[in-house]
């Protein structure tokens, strides 16, 4: 079968069709990694590009990501069997004091759509938890999200905690959220600020390729 069809249906958010097609592709003996890359990730890539260019909006991204997750659930055991490695590993969460996670979830989906493995630490995550996870799970990147001006300062604590733990040169720290900007990134000395979820995923992939 033409894996492009999976990509097209994923972009349209048709979760049921995507699931059926992925199963069909598996039954035809197409390797899981090929289905993932040429079908699901290809579709999510298109979605990310369109989102970045303001051609589509958040609901379409969420609906497409929902379709991707349905497909990935079928592929996951096969990928593990085949010992396929993710492009890189990221831990992500909203910073301590912040419970607003819709933006964070969007970034997570976009990163998974780029083939990254994402450890979701949820909301209200302390600087220590970020750093501890990065060490124990060998993460390439720590991603911090904040929606509130009252909580964004915690991002600076994450950078300091990474320095104190001696992993600052091994891990990249990315930040995002409504009140955050490039000037703030420079001020706290994080590695990257991105304006939207698709750019965050691109940036994370570039970091992982570089290391």
């Amino acid at each position: 079968m033409d894996l492009k069809e999976i990509s097209v249906q994923l972009q349209a958010g048709k979760a049921k069709i995507v699931k059926t097609l992925v199963q069909q592709a598996i039954d035809e003996g197409i390797p899981a990694q090929e289905i993932l890359e040429k079908g699901l990730l290809d579709g999510m890539n298109e979605v990310g590009e369109k989102f970045k260019n303001n051609e589509i909006f958040v609901p379409e991204v969420l609906v497409a990501a929902r379709a991707m997750n349905q497909g990935v659930s079928l592929l996951k055991p096969l990928l593990q069997q085949a010992g396929v490695q993710a492009t890189g590993r990221v831990c992500i969460g909203t910073v301590q004091g912040d419970l607003h996670d819709i933006g964070k979830n969007l970034v997570k989906m976009m990163m998974e759509g780029k083939g990254l493995e994402v450890i979701d630490l949820g909301t209200d995550v302390s600087a220590d938890t970020f750093v501890k996870t990065a060490i124990e799970q060998h993460c390439d990147i720590i991603c911090c999200s904040a929606l509130l001006t009252t909580t964004m300062s915690v991002m600076g604590d994450v950078v300091k905690a990474a320095e104190a733990a001696g992993i600052r040169d091994k891990v990249k720290i990315m930040i995002g959220g409504a009140p955050v900007n490039e000037a703030f990134r420079a001020q706290i000395d994080a590695d990257a600020y991105t304006t939207d979820a698709a750019s965050a995923a691109d940036c994370a992939v570039n970091f992982c390729k570089a290391c």
Partner: peptide
């Protein structure tokens, strides 16, 4: 916020 059931329903 941070409630996984809410996130699933939301999507």
């Amino acid at each position: 916020g941070g409630n996984p059931r809410f996130n699933e329903h939301y999507i």
